[in-house]
């Protein structure tokens, strides 16, 4: 497997997602001879995983079973080790579309963070594009590089450990799109402009606070970016349930016994609590002039 290409069978070194049900899952690095403990019992990599098709049902030692899934950037986002706050698929989706990413796109990103968006970008721009990702935190930059190798996507990504506000992206006039998720995006707008292709390109900045957005929009205007738009996207999930509403007893006129009953129907009910804010997304185009 790799994160940019499906394969049928699980092999040594693959990252696989063990799905326990209930939306509960975790990633494993498949290794000959290794074992993974789950609440349903042990999974023996050599016997249960290697050579099996992705999507198989694996019966664990205690008789319970799990599914082994092919990794995707979306599953990775739900399972990655959090080194920072991460971007989730709802934001990632609109970022990808609004930045017009596709195979062949060259993208600059900062910070790399936990690599959630990075994996999604690489998936989209491969096999002919490239991601330049800048992370100021050294350990995080190293860990991201490791993960990219493990996930067999390292040829499509260059990780740089530097401060994007001071030193930029390390490349000039190559990018179709720039993405910023840093505390002071307004300090990096100049570098972002420099990283974008001479003939233009798209920019996105993600910020949780409105004051960051205000400063960023001002900096974008000062650097001649156009089509500046800010938006916010929220996921609204529904649980599918069977609801039972009892029918009230209004007293049958002739029948002395109450006529009781209930109405049953399938419904999609919103979750009681949901994510109310991730961040504001500001998009802009590099002006031609």
């Amino acid at each position: 497997m790799s994160f940019v290409e499906y394969e049928e069978l699980i092999k040594e070194g693959d990252t696989a997602i063990i799905f326990l049900g209930h939306g509960s899952m975790f990633p494993v690095q498949v290794q000959r001879g290794a074992q993974t403990q789950t609440k349903y019992g042990v999974i023996r990599h050599s016997a249960h995983l290697i050579g099996q098709p992705f999507g198989s049902r694996v019966t664990c030692s205690k008789g319970g079973w799990v599914y082994v899934l092919h990794p995707t950037p979306e599953l990775w986002t739900l399972n990655l080790p959090h080194r920072t706050q991460i971007l989730y698929s709802t934001d990632i989706s609109i970022i990808t579309m609004m930045l017009e990413l596709k195979p062949g796109s060259v993208v600059c990103e900062s910070g790399t963070g936990s690599g959630s968006l990075s994996h999604a970008i690489i998936r989209t721009v491969a096999p002919t594009g490239h991601l330049h990702t800048v992370e100021f935190h050294q350990q995080r930059a190293q860990k991201a590089e490791e993960e990219f190798r493990e996930h067999r996507v390292d040829r499509w990504v260059t990780v740089r450990n530097q401060d994007v506000c001071k030193n930029g992206f390390g490349v000039s006039h190559v990018a179709d799109a720039v993405f910023l998720d840093i505390p002071s995006p307004w300090e990096a707008i100049g570098h972002a402009k420099d990283a974008l292709k001479v003939e233009g390109g798209r920019l996105c900045s993600f910020s949780p606070c409105i004051e960051q957005v205000q400063r960023t929009c001002q900096a974008l205007a000062e650097h001649g970016f156009i089509e500046v738009t800010t938006l916010e996207i929220l996921l609204r999930e529904y649980n599918v349930r069977t609801a039972n509403l009892p029918l009230p007893d209004l007293g049958g006129a002739l029948d002395p016994l109450p006529v009781l009953g209930e109405a049953q129907f399938k419904i999609g009910v919103p979750l009681r609590e949901t994510v109310g804010h991730t961040g504001y997304l500001t998009f802009a185009s590099k002006s031609l002039f």
Partner: peptide, 13 residues
């Protein structure tokens, strides 16, 4: 000051 945003969690319904 400098960190205004909607609360991170909200009621779904």
């Amino acid at each position: 000051p400098d960190r205004s945003h909607p609360k991170l969690m909200m009621s779904g319904g």
